[in-house]
Design a binder for these strands. Structure first.
Lengths: 149, 149
DNA sequence: TATTGTTATACTCTATAACTATA
DNA sequence: TATAGTTATAGAGTATAACAATA
């Protein structure tokens, strides 16, 4: 009867709305902090993955190495992240959050936490797992798409 | 013992990763279709909300009315959406997807559907509800943030 | 030779402000 | 007067390409 299909369609629709809400959230955080959208994405990546090489960070964000240079310049001038030397490879700069960058991340953490307010607390652990599975699959899917343009 | 807190923290972390994956997905769709990021966001909004006024669409995307004009100009020149007259208010232009715009949405629908591949099918209906709840709360939260800058 | 990052230049997209047309 | 959209101009952010330093 196509029940499976309509269930999947509904899930896709919800995911689409969530992605749009995430992009809206990103703009709101950027507006709130006075940073740009890409800057706040970078802070979020650094919070999740820990310190990254400058180009590695740019690759995660989908920008070129020259744009990465400009991005980290802005992050440093705004005091939310900083370069430091890679131990053992003098070509590389690693990037880490400053205390002020951590503050921004913590603030956005609280805002994200509030968005779970309507979710029943006993479903939260399973939901966290599902969100991560979707994120990982979506990332893999996007990378496959990008690799054959 | 802080168990509730750590469960919530883990959920927030998963949501953060999912938002980043969504932004990565957006870039991949833009690259694949040859459209810009904002264009593909607009197509997604039109798919979810149905036809919208030009400025209304821009407001959803967080851009100004002049940027909306330029955006819809691009959507039209690329053949994925089109203006049509509002019946009864000659100031307004409504925007709708073209057949080609629908094709883009359908293609991205399939990509999104694939990202549910690792989710157990019996959890899918409840998951769809949770995703929508999170999206709605996140959107409301972001609007609250934006209204006091 | 390959990799990491920087600089110079051009392009795309968006914001601000002034304007037209309609309600 | 207020609203929907357009145009002109300026600015932010990114891409491309050429380059320097290190592996």
């Amino acid at each position: 009867m196509g029940g499976d299909q309509s269930v999947l369609d509904e899930a896709v629709r919800s995911l689409r709305v969530l992605i749009l809400a995430g992009e809206n959230y990103r703009q709101a955080v950027a507006l709130w902090t006075g940073l740009g959208v890409t800057e706040t994405q970078a802070l979020s990546y650094l919070a999740v993955h820990g310190d990254l090489g400058q180009n590695q960070l740019g690759a995660e964000l989908g920008i070129t190495s020259s744009a990465s240079t400009a991005l980290v310049d802005r992050l440093e001038s705004q005091g939310v992240a900083e370069r430091y030397a890679h131990p053992g490879d003098r070509r590389r700069s690693l990037v880490r959050l400053t205390t002020r960058g951590d503050d921004v991340v913590q603030q956005s953490h609280d805002w994200l936490a509030a968005s779970f307010g309507e979710v029943a607390s006993d479903t939260l652990p399973g939901l966290a797992v599902s969100l991560r599975q979707i994120a990982d699959s979506l990332r893999a899917q996007s990378d496959r798409m990008s690799s054959r343009p």
